[in-house]
Design a protein around this nucleic acid. Structure first.
Length: 477
RNA sequence: UCCUCCUUAGCUCAGUUGGUUAGAGCACAUGACUGUUAAUCAUGGGGUCUCAGGUUCAAGUCCUGAAGGGGGAGCCA
């Protein structure tokens, strides 16, 4: 018999027909009721085991975590907790699970930290099942969003010879031996003998390559892994993370903001439409977690309220200069609550961004037109000579979720800025070429995928929204 | 990388001013129970108190160091 998925059976309009289900036992009550989960949804299906169906030995093998196959009749449930259930006619143990050795005893509410150390099994918990179904939906919605807008999905290289934008420390890619590394006459490592004949790294961003695509295909986006070898130990950083980077020819900074805002709202709407069971569960989890905190530190809004707020309101748009002004006029500044001083020209600290988003505006904020000296070389210089056409989207609880800009399309200005910031023109000749041959205004941004998942799931640690997190000193699994 | 906190049973945690044999709930095992819903009830096994030093008559408890982890900061997405 063909296997049915549990989510489809739970939503079945009809009953009293034969079904086959397979999954993992979540609990076995009263030697009679199996709660079965197959990952297709949060809920479990109740399988009812008749008195004489199984021999003693098989019955003993129905333990938490065991994989089983069930054939039976889908019927209306006599019990209160569920509408339908399966009266088993045949149960086959596919894989036993030694209860004593199994690390997940779900009734014990194992901590997120404990589950992180058992990341190979944590998918079997309600929380991580929900997170990764939501993560999937977000990934799918990203492709759907850009596809509907006529974008081309462009794959940029993971191994690269360029340092893109100096976005961060890079992981080196090499086949050279660690012992007796070939040296040049000058005593330096001779990369000519390396696999690519030059020094290579894992990419920190596909943006520069995406720009090349945009200057011909018009509208492109990347969605792939990126790597940063920064020794960052926070709840918001990973050494390996996924990034979405749209790049659009002829777009201005305002177009860019519209696209980013549209994109974020689309993604959240998609999840609210398709993953409400999981979101409700995650909202409940967050609420319980919040209850543990002192009243003052609790969030004003629940997860669903927070998501609705983002979907239903326009993002606040202010310039960097206005943001600094708001901070200086703020009660927090006047009461000297900020650890770091505020003045025009500073790179805003987390505490400043949090104040703007969480205290002042209470919704996502887009900050534009940053001082050129704190931003990358490729951002378009404004007429004032002091700022660039940059934009960061700051989200409550996450901080920067999007960073983008209108790119400098003017050859002379770009070249001058590269010289000032000591960026090699030789290495980036191909990037400069786009400004030489039919240059055009264009803009793009980077959206941190895990930060988006973090925001939507209401989780607190980025290590819990990627299946196998890569962080300093940790590359298990 | 810096600051700070934590590490006691399989899990989540108690453990008082240093003082007998280190506790609880859950999990697990055995048995009972056949409409349970975190099932319930009875019984039972389970500890190198993270590691290495030190102080002391005596250390889970105090001191030093290391490792691992949490939170915050910086860097950023």
């Amino acid at each position: 018999m063909k296997r049915s998925k549990i989510n489809s059976l739970l939503n079945s309009k009809e009953v009293n027909y034969s079904v086959c289900v397979k999954g993992w036992v979540r609990s076995f009550r009263n030697n009679q009721f199996i709660a079965l989960n197959d990952g297709s949804c949060l809920a479990t299906l109740q399988v009812v085991v008749g008195l004489d169906l199984l021999d003693e030995a098989t019955l003993k093998q129905i333990t938490n975590g065991a994989a089983i196959s069930v054939e039976g009749i889908l019927v209306a449930s006599q019990g209160k907790g569920q509408l339908v259930e399966v009266n088993a006619q045949k149960i086959e143990i596919l894989g036993t699970c030694d209860s004593e050795a199994y690390p997940l005893q779900l009734k014990n509410k194992p901590s997120l930290e404990y589950l992180r150390e058992h990341a190979h099994l944590r998918f079997r918990t309600n929380v991580f099942g929900a997170i990764f179904r939501v993560r999937h939906s977000l990934a799918f919605a990203i492709h759907k969003f850009f596809n509907e807008k006529g974008f081309v999905y462009l794959n940029t290289p993971i191994i690269t010879a360029s340092d893109a934008e100096g976005a961060g420390e890079m992981f080196r890619v090499t086949t050279l031996p660690f012992e007796q590394t070939p040296k040049t006459d000058a005593g330096e490592i001779n990369f000519e003998e390396d696999f690519f004949g030059r020094s290579t790294n894992l990419t920190v961003s596909g943006q520069l390559e995406a720009e090349l695509g945009a200057m011909a295909l018009g509208e492109v986006y990347t969605f792939g892994p990126t790597f940063r070898a920064e020794n960052s130990n926070t709840t918001r950083h990973l050494a390996e993370f996924w990034m979405i980077e749209p790049e659009v020819a002829f777009n201005t900074l305002t177009d860019n903001m519209d696209l980013a805002e549209d994109c974020i709202q689309y993604l959240i709407n998609y999840v609210l439409e398709h993953n409400m069971d999981d979101i409700n569960f995650l909202a409940q989890r967050l609420e319980e977690e919040e209850k543990q905190k002192p009243t003052q530190e609790r969030s004003e809004f629940g997860l669903i309220e927070k998501l609705r707020l983002v979907v239903d309101n326009k993002f606040e748009r202010i310039t960097y200069t206005e943001a600094i002004e708001i901070l200086i006029q703020s009660p927090a500044y006047k009461k000297k609550k900020f650890k770091y001083d505020v003045s025009w020209g500073i790179d805003m600290q987390s505490e400043h961004e949090r104040y703007l988003v969480e205290k002042h505006f209470k919704k996502p904020v887009i900050v534009t037109d940053y001082p050129k000296d704190i931003k990358a070389f490729y951002m378009r210089q404004n007429e004032d000579g002091k700022t660039v056409a940059a934009m960061d989207i700051l989200a409550p609880g996450i901080g920067e979720i999007v960073g983008g800009s209108q790119r400098e399309e003017r050859y002379d200005k770009l070249k001058q800025r590269m010289q000032e910031m000591h960026i090699s023109e030789e290495e980036l000749y191909w990037y400069l070429d786009t400004r030489k041959f039919g240059t055009a205004p264009h803009a793009g941004f980077g959206l941190g995928f895990e930060r988006m998942v973090l925001f939507v799931t209401g989780m607190g640690n980025i290590r819990d929204v990627i299946p196998f997190p890569r962080t300093p000193k940790n590359a298990s699994f």
